[in-house]
Design a protein around this nucleic acid. Structure first.
Lengths: 201, 201
DNA sequence: AACTGTGAATTGTTTCACAGCT
DNA sequence: AGCTGTGAAACAATTCACAGTT
């Protein structure tokens, strides 16, 4: 449900860009394929932002949501694993646009360590815990192979990581208090294949 | 719940690789951080595969799941948008390892169309519907910018697409029967930031 | 003794529907 | 009239707990 808050925020930014000043829960819902009641419930979770008979003030609501989500500041992020996916994410502007700034980059491969990659100096993964702690980085993007993910995640937690975006196709076991979002592309495709498979026959 | 079936399958393959012949719901659950009851409920959904007092036969169960999920064959996939992310996915072995084979690649940019990209001939996005239909491709990976995603998805559906893996940060509105999995990396990071934000203080 | 399959109980989420505000 | 905020109802997912099987 916090996940949807991010969607609202982005849609509000879009409305703002179009010069819209006020939106109703119905409009917001239509743009995101959600019911109006759902939108209201979700937003009410963070506080009372709406004006009966009018709707929500786009700018106000966006600001309030941003504050509630902790997005009214830039979050430093570490990225581990400079393979295909890691490099693509470094090149991508998507993260920085939404207030996430890659601060350090790590890899295991000694041929990459010490090199610059997409403008970032690649650090040895051995220094992961040390540098996370020193720079107070709590968010980690994990793009390492499956067989290394658990070990690297453990190092990250030692360095104080609180949230891990895990692209490796394995389930991570980590202490409570550490949040893991698995991003498992094959699993998603398998879901789609399942539905396609059971659709036509 | 179908999503978890893919996880079971992968874990079973891992067990098979380790030479394990039989697993209990508890073991399977431990490997994936799930309760044993959940594992049993999920598996029971596909049929009765277990042997009371013994557990599940790793090879049998994997095969049954694969068949139930429609993964006992290779699925052709189209990829649209050869930007950073698209190229990274083309280079990645992850999809093909799990039985998904990229069959055509599309882009809008005339400078890319006609070129080879990671070994794939880039087709113009105008031919998307035509080629999907001709090659009976129903799964589409969408890596185009947000402002083009809806239009491209529409073309894909015209060509017969049944499942879309959408990396663009917008909600797609598509006819019922078409399945969309949004993969929204910033939203995930925002969720992590929220938890980190509300953890320590 | 070990383990499955599954009803029943619990917990969580979404939808409904309406009182109350502007 | 139009819209919010929210209890109550419906629905879905998870967990419990145990009868039944090997």
């Amino acid at each position: 449900m916090v996940a949807r808050a991010g969607l609202y925020l982005r849609q509000l930014d879009a409305f703002k860009g179009q010069g819209v000043h006020t939106v109703s829960s119905r409009q917001l819902g239509e743009a995101l394929n959600l019911g109006d009641a759902q939108v209201r419930k979700d937003l009410a979770w963070f506080g009372q932002f709406g004006h009966p008979g009018v709707g929500y003030d786009v700018i106000d609501l966006a600001e309030s949501l941003r504050a509630a989500l902790g997005l009214d500041r830039v979050w430093p992020v570490a990225l581990v694993g400079v393979g295909n996916l890691g490099r693509a994410l470094l090149r991508d502007r998507g993260f920085s646009q939404r207030g996430f700034q890659v601060e350090c980059v790590f890899d295991k491969d000694p041929r990459l360590v010490g090199q610059r990659c997409e403008g970032f100096l690649v650090e040895p993964v051995e220094r992961l815990a040390e540098l996370l702690a020193a720079r107070r980085i709590v968010l980690v993007v994990l793009c390492v192979p499956a067989d290394q993910a658990q070990a690297v995640a453990h190092r990250a937690v030692e360095g104080g990581a609180k949230g891990i975006l895990n692209f490796a196709p394995v389930a991570l076991s980590l202490p409570p208090g550490v949040d893991v979002v698995p991003v498992d592309l094959s699993i998603h495709l398998e879901r789609l294949a399942y539905h396609a498979h059971h659709a036509g026959r």
